[in-house]
Amino acid sequence: MSEDFKNEVVIQLPNISIIPFQNINKAYIKVISINFFLISLTSFIGLFLLQYYLLSEDILQYIIQLYLGLGTLCILLYGYFLLAFPNRKYAIRNKDISYKYGLLVFKTTTVPFSRIQHVEIDERPISRFFNLAAIRIYTAGDDSDDLVIKGIQKQKALEIKEFISTTINE
């Protein structure tokens, strides 16, 4: 019996693994870099302040290792972000929107338009500088797992939002 089901699926259904996915805007890598730079800078300043005001002698003898550790952590994380960046892709079909990302763990999420509660577009300061926006899609499912696509050109994001809104209201 389960054979029937399998055949039916392979022949008829649109297949998620072969639809063309689009890359997000290349400029978003700059946003990631700037954000990352700011965060690393603050953590280094934090460590610096700790060194002068708070840390005791026992810890201070390892201060070089601490700086090196923080530095390696930042470089590794930045490398991870850079390598993972080309994997951030999205696709819009007639009836749903999909997003995939990840480097060590690949994730593909699809939200059917008929289950969308509302769509939001937000622009963070740095993204706005590059004319980029993020689309947030909310469903009745768990909030934390809803779909967020960052780094889409603002004009395009608005178009997508418009498209989804008109499809929902049909």
Binding site: L104, T110, P112, D145
Partner: peptide, 11 residues
């Protein structure tokens, strides 16, 4: 009744 669906695959 599914709201959205995710496929997860580690290396």
């Amino acid at each position: 009744k599914v709201q959205h669906i995710q496929l997860k695959q580690s290396i």
